[in-house]
Design a protein around this nucleic acid. Structure first.
Lengths: 190, 190
DNA sequence: TTGCTTATTAGACTTTAATCCATTAATTAA
DNA sequence: TTAATTAATGGATTAAAGTCTAATAAGCAA
């Protein structure tokens, strides 16, 4: 399946790069809602249709741009056995919050887009949200194995509580700081 | 301050009623994003400017329409002393979820609007979100007083965890059902 | 070279939220 | 009755996302 007939003008990879760079730059500088498609293609020096050949909406483009630019923050840390899991969770949350303090406004805008577009919502959830949720779930299971957390508890539900808590804060424009990381951790580890 | 000079054409209260009714009806039937201002004023039989004389955006109008139509669900229940607090929380969550299963799609759209409009976000949070958050906080404090929950725990944080959990589920288009109410409750009451 | 195929470009077009304006309507005060 | 004031109306306008189209560009295969 999906065999392409040979030939045809090749896709210009530079156009993609320029579009992502322009989108990220403009969105971080002026805010998602204040950046028009027209401004992005103008800065990228590319035609409108070229953008829509690659991404179907502004949200898709910006998601990819933010995602690629912040791989660092989404990386699974190796759980350091020298520290207890309570500390690991708190430190991981602090790391997530650092990212959210850079791109939080953009991510809020993407969550908003996701509510209007089920396909984008699925993509956003799969690429951005779920991976971290699974990282925390695995950390909590690790804590159960090490006896730092009662094995009777539901790691998936606890992870959802943690995620819910900081997304809820973000969407309500509350600060995400070290104190919050500590407070959330305290309520999870009894 | 704020004294109005007498005279002037009086505001037509029926126009407000008709606009709210039209907005609620259309939004529930076709979905928030599929309902245009043009459709609302047409069904209400009112001029465009009349709508904007009362609400500054579609989101403000729909929030008020939904809010008025669902006072029932937002009412503070009297905590029945015959039941333990675990049961009360679970039942309260079930009640909230019943409402979210009617207007959840609309509320998701309003959350999206709130991300684009800080003033609306504040209004939405104050009118819709915070009251329930406080109800659950007070229930958890009640549980602490009755010794059903350790008094060392942070009731405000726990309430945020609970709220975060179901808003998170709602925004990710996951089901809000009795099982979720039970699972959330279980993780709060140890 | 000549087709064939796909990508890019520029710009017209559609839709919708929101603003703006001139005109008309409804009310109070003199 | 007249003037002042405020609301409602209908329609024009603006801004932006997204769609569409015709012309052109850049490759492959014969």
């Amino acid at each position: 399946m999906s065999e392409k007939k040979a030939g045809g003008r090749p896709i210009n990879a530079q156009a993609s790069t320029a579009l992502k760079a322009a989108a990220l730059h403009l969105v971080r500088e002026y805010g998602y809602e204040n950046v028009s498609i027209a401004a992005i293609i103008k800065e990228a020096g590319v035609a409108r249709q070229t953008l829509y050949n690659r991404w179907s909406t502004k949200a898709d483009l910006v998601l990819e741009a933010v995602f690629e630019a912040t791989n660092t923050y989404a990386a699974q840390p190796r759980w350091d056995d020298a520290k207890d899991c309570r500390t690991l969770l708190e430190e991981f949350l602090v790391k997530i919050f650092e990212h959210l303090n850079i791109d939080g406004d953009t991510l809020r805008a993407l969550v908003a887009s996701a509510q209007r577009d089920a396909a984008f919502q699925a993509s956003f959830y799969t690429r951005f949200v779920l991976p971290r949720e699974e990282m925390i779930t695995s950390l909590l299971r690790h804590a159960q194995e090490r006896g730092e957390l009662s094995s009777g508890r539901d790691a998936v539900m606890m992870s959802a509580l943690v995620h819910g808590a900081f997304w809820y804060r973000l969407l309500n424009r509350n600060p995400l700081d070290a104190k919050l990381a500590k407070d959330i951790t305290s309520e999870i580890f009894v």
